[in-house]
């Protein structure tokens, strides 16, 4: 959300991560590095390409770590920002402890109270992702149960809207004890009294989730 982002130039990136031009261009071609990370800026040699430092370094390390045992196209699926995938059975994800039974019960109960349709089994990929997020948020202990349920509901509704491929950013603000949850794909400003409690890049969380499903520890 801040204007002054920490950027890294292409040359510096290649030096610090020890990858070649060929690899970088290949990864971009296969969709492992999003196009939006390539930022053109003018420099003394003409135009120069920069990347958001933290994101790109994390991504390159991840690709380097996975490259040996996964094909590039499979890796592209893992890193894809669209929350699409095969439905998952509730039994499997509770057994692997991706979402605990207690969280499921809580979500089920909340759905019942709000008159929303109950969670189906097998559960759609996107819903499983949101349930996993709720699980981690509950574990964090920063948000109350009601707020986590609010987050889950907002995410589900935002997914229903399906307006853009980019999942965007999840924000939860509190003002005088009232919580407001939103998903945005740009920049938002709140008044001074509002406290931002949670900011989460959904694309990155999605990648983490996919990794977890694959049985990899991040």
């Amino acid at each position: 959300m801040n204007e002054q982002e920490d950027l890294i130039s292409k040359k510096e990136l290649l030096e610090t991560t020890n990858i070649s031009y060929g690899q970088l261009y290949r990864w971009k071609r296969k969709g492992l590095i999003p196009e939006s990370w390539f930022r053109k800026k003018s420099a003394f040699t003409g135009q120069e390409t920069f990347f958001p430092r933290q994101e790109i370094l994390e991504r390159v390390e991840r690709i380097k770590g996975m490259k040996e045992d996964v094909a590039l196209s499979e890796l592209a699926d893992l890193l894809s920002p669209t929350p699409s995938g095969d439905p998952l059975s509730i039994e499997e994800i509770t057994r692997r402890n991706i979402v605990s039974q207690a969280t499921f019960d809580l979500l089920q109960e909340a759905a019942w109270e709000n008159g929303a349709p109950p969670l189906s089994d097998p559960i759609p990929f996107g819903t499983a992702f949101h349930a996993h997020l709720s699980e981690t948020l509950l574990g964090d202990g920063k948000l109350s149960r009601e707020e986590v349920l609010l987050v889950f509901r907002t995410l589900e509704e935002a997914r229903g809207a399906e307006r853009s491929e980019e999942p965007g950013e999840l924000v939860l603000v509190r003002k005088r004890g009232v919580a407001l949850c939103l998903v945005h794909r740009g920049e938002v400003l709140f008044d001074r009294e509002a406290r931002t409690v949670l900011e989460m890049d959904l694309a990155r969380a999605l990648t983490d989730f996919r990794w977890l499903l694959k049985g990899e520890r991040t």
Partner: peptide
């Protein structure tokens, strides 16, 4: 405008920047 690569061999090329 720019040409970037690991192995570059050029003949009859006009470019502003070649990096490799």
């Amino acid at each position: 405008r720019t040409i970037e690569g690991d192995e570059i061999f050029l003949e009859d090329v006009t470019a502003e920047l070649v990096r490799g």
